[in-house]
């Protein structure tokens, strides 16, 4: 598809902004949908109504909210470290756009399919923590700083099991191209043969996106807002947007790695892809609205003492079996 963009615009310098716009639009629409869905799911689990006023079932409510956020005055507190404070939301958001260009939505729908797409995805998703730390440090606020520090520790702890569980898939598929990984799963999805890796991946991914019960960096009952305490208006909106976009990304990655991507009977590929992604997103919401938050040291202990050994063992067993077969 990237090639198509270049053909349409004639030059790669026009094609890149166009592609970014398309991705932003895609993310925006999905994020708005997910925010709406989150509010509806939360409401129904708590026996409430959720948004009902704007649009059918309140579907336009989140759009109104976004317009409100955009129209708000951008406040820069006087005590912040200006450069870091301003650059942080952008640093957080840029890698997300890059990652999005790598996902195969269906057999032919992909911006660019690299051989090492998986490495890129993991590398870019690791960059998010830089943005979070910049926000926390630049805000010059103790709560933000605590949030940022917690965020870094958490990300370091959960990158490891995340990558280890992904490696098991890579060993089985013998490729790092997302497109080929999906193609490998044409008979059975990897969740059947790699259930442990799938579970570890999903838990680590939930922690990676700072979603409850791992929302320790922004725990609002402890750290008020964590790293984004000092942000308001659309700058806060970007953090919010980034959180939901990274939800889409990890769920899309899980779909590609374990659920067989776009593959499925009868319906067209991208429909299957979205069904799977949205199911995983629902699962994440279900977690969030059921569990209390873990404490920081428990979270680390859980990662280092349970997830990492399990993922290593899983990897070892996978490697041995693959070798033997």
């Amino acid at each position: 598809m990237a090639r198509n963009f270049t053909e349409i615009f004639g030059s790669v310098w026009f094609a890149i902004p166009a592609a970014v716009t398309v991705i932003m639009g895609f993310l925006a629409i999905n994020a708005l949908m997910i925010v709406w869905m989150e509010r509806k799911v939360a409401a129904r689990m708590q026996r409430r109504m959720g948004p009902t006023e704007r649009g059918v079932f309140g579907l336009l409510q989140t759009t109104y909210d976004m317009i409100k956020l955009m129209s708000k005055e951008l406040i820069t507190p006087r005590h912040v470290s200006r450069k870091l404070y301003l650059v942080a939301p952008v640093v957080l958001f840029t890698p997300i756009i890059a990652i999005c260009s790598l996902f195969p939505l269906s057999e032919n729908w992909v911006f660019h399919d690299y051989d090492i797409a998986l490495v890129l995805v993991l590398a870019f998703s690791g960059m998010a923590v830089v943005g979070i730390f910049a926000a926390g440090w630049g805000s010059n606020n103790k709560y933000s700083l605590l949030g940022a520090v917690r965020s870094i520790l958490q990300n370091i702890a959960y990158e490891v099991p995340l990558i280890l569980s992904v490696l098991a898939v890579v060993i089985m598929a013998r490729t790092m191209s997302l497109h080929e990984i999906v193609m490998e799963q044409s008979t059975i999805p990897y969740i059947v043969v790699q259930p442990l890796a799938a579970i570890i991946f999903f838990i680590a991914a939930t922690a990676e996106t700072n979603r409850a019960p791992f929302d320790i960096p922004e725990a609002e009952s402890e750290l008020v807002g964590g790293f984004h305490t000092e942000y308001s208006g659309m700058r806060f909106g970007l953090f919010f947007f980034a959180e939901y976009s990274s939800m889409i990304i990890v769920c899309a990655l899980a779909t590609v790695l374990f659920l067989g991507g776009w593959q499925g009977p009868i319906l067209p590929g991208f429909v299957w892809f979205f069904i799977k992604v949205y199911f995983l997103i629902f699962l994440m919401m279900w977690f969030r609205w059921t569990f209390p938050r873990l404490r920081f040291d428990q979270l680390l202990r859980f990662a280092w003492l349970l997830l990492v050994p399990l993922a290593l063992a899983n990897l070892l067993v996978t490697a041995i079996i693959v070798k033997l077969i």
């Binding site: 939360a42 026996r47 409430r48 019960p213 009952s221 059921t290 209390p292 938050r293």
Partner: peptide
């Protein structure tokens, strides 16, 4: 208490 611990749903129940 549950809200302080991050569980919002029990609060509403």
């Amino acid at each position: 208490l549950l809200m302080d611990l991050g569980g919002f749903t029990p609060f509403l129940y």
